[in-house]
Computed example of a mutant assay.
Amino acid sequence: MAFQRAAAVADFRDGAALSVTLDGVDVALAREAGEYYAIKDECSHAMVALSEGDVENCAIECWAHGATFDLRTGEPNCPPATEPVATFPVQVDGDDVLVDVTRTLNGVTP
């Protein structure tokens, strides 16, 4: 696995996502109930940045059309999105949040 530092724990705010680029992959990072998640930062419906949307109930909302995606699985929760987005492994090492963009948790190509 190729985990790399994506952000500091202190960078996270509840209800919001962070946008980072790791090895050319745009990633939205979020924290919900003390868990950290990494999901491709692109809505599968509108091709806009998911990191600009709200995070709530372990989902991230696309600000353009209101589709939401499960942070754990990348699956869309409601229309208009019908295709999942890639999710990536995350681990916390001290004050750092690490992400591995070389593989996905859900098998979706980033």
Rank of each mutant, 00 (worst) to 15 (best):
I39C: 08
D23V: 11
M47C: 13
T87N: 05
Q91N: 04
A67P: 02
D41G: 05
A2I: 02
E56H: 11
G94I: 06
M1K: 10
E61N: 03
E75G: 07
A64P: 00
P84F: 07
R13F: 11
V101M: 04
P110T: 09
T102E: 14
R103K: 14
T21I: 15
G66W: 05
P76K: 03
L50I: 02
V92L: 02
Y37D: 03
A59S: 12
A81V: 10
A46H: 08
L105M: 12
A30M: 04
T87E: 09
A10K: 13
S51H: 06
E32L: 01
P84W: 09
T73L: 06
A17W: 02
D23Q: 13
D14E: 15
S51G: 07
L50D: 01
E75C: 11
E61A: 13
H45L: 08
E52R: 10
G24F: 09
A49H: 10
G34T: 09
S51T: 05
A64L: 15
A33S: 13
Q4L: 12
G24N: 08
D14N: 12
A64Y: 14
G24A: 10
L71D: 02
A28P: 03
T73H: 07
D54I: 07
H45R: 02
E35S: 12
A33F: 01
V85G: 06
C43E: 01
Y37W: 11
Y36G: 07
T21R: 13
A2N: 15
T68C: 11
G107I: 09
H65E: 10
A16K: 15
M1H: 11
A16G: 00
